[in-house]
Each structure stands twice: as C-alpha cells, then as structure tokens.
Computed example of a mutant assay.
Amino acid sequence: MPITLTLTENVLPAGQEAVAASKITEAFLKHHGLSGNTVMTPNVTTHVVLIAKGHSFSGGKPVEGAWVETKTPSFALADHAVQAEFFGEATQILHDLSGGTLSKDRIWSNGVHTVDGTWNMSGKALTNAAIGEAISAG
C-alpha cells in the first residue's frame, strides 16, 4: 500500500525523510491493527518526493509544505476514526521532525482507494478478499 510523502526541500532537516517514512509506515500499520503483520509490513511502501522551493503552491502562491497520500484497497482507511488518527499522527510526525518549523497548516493529506482486484503483491493481482486472507495468515 504505497504512501507518497512529498516535501518541499528543507522542510525537514537532512536525513529526516527516512525517519518520517519509517514512522508514518509504523503509524499506518498501528492504526489498522497490523503492527508486525508479516504480510502487510513489507507491503506498506513509502516513497519520498522532494520538490524544489518555488515549485509547490497553495492557493496559487508558492508554499513550503508537506503532503501525505495513501493508495489503499477500499477496506483500509475506511473508518473515519482510523482516518483521523492516522493522518493526525502523520501530521504530528512531520511537524515534530521539522523541529516545529513546519506548521500543521502546511501539511496536507489524502487517501485514494484502488479498484478491487488491482492491488498487486508478489506478482499477483489480488481482490480485497484475497488480501484479507493473506493478512489473516500473517
């Protein structure tokens, strides 16, 4: 389940991008009750995109910020309490890792649900039911 972390350059101190990716992945698994799950842990992936200053915008004006986007099967992040807890924690992680310089109002997030049957693990396109079975085994 890919998580995309997009950051304007230098909103986090150098080297903290990897820490952010790790902590946000852990938060995602925790809020879904999947911490330590041997199937899902390696299948929650994160990639970091750095954007040069002057190339990210809010309201059409340059802004330095952070964006967290998830792409998941429809059963993940389906409950509003889980959404609020996960994205709230991800926001706090980024704010804290910035040393408090990245204000929470410059951290945006969203979740995208994929079409059932299009999630690929180990070279196989799996339905939501098949993913559920795999998770139960892990």
Rank of each mutant, 00 (worst) to 15 (best):
T41N: 14
T72S: 11
G36D: 03
T45G: 13
G54C: 04
S56A: 15
S74V: 06
G123R: 05
T25Y: 10
F87E: 04
H55F: 15
S122Y: 08
K30L: 13
M1D: 01
G117L: 09
H47W: 14
N110C: 10
V82S: 05
G88F: 09
T4S: 01
A129T: 07
E133S: 13
E26I: 05
P73D: 14
S98Y: 05
E9S: 03
L7A: 00
S98L: 04
K71E: 05
T114N: 03
V11S: 04
L5V: 01
D96N: 14
E17F: 08
T101I: 05
L29N: 15
E9R: 08
S136M: 14
H47R: 13
I135C: 07
G15C: 05
G60L: 12
K61L: 14
L29K: 11
L7N: 00
A20V: 10
T8K: 00
G59H: 12
F87L: 07
G138R: 06
R106Y: 11
V112Q: 02
H32P: 04
S103Q: 12
S136W: 03
T25Q: 11
G60T: 12
T45C: 15
V112P: 00
L34E: 09
M40Q: 09
E64Q: 15
E26V: 14
L12P: 01
N128Q: 09
N10Y: 00
A27I: 05
P42E: 13
N10G: 01
K124H: 07
E64M: 11
N10V: 00
F57K: 10
T101N: 07
I135K: 02
V44L: 12
P62W: 03
G88K: 06
G138Y: 05
A27P: 03
L7I: 08
K124G: 02
A18V: 03
T8S: 12
D96M: 06
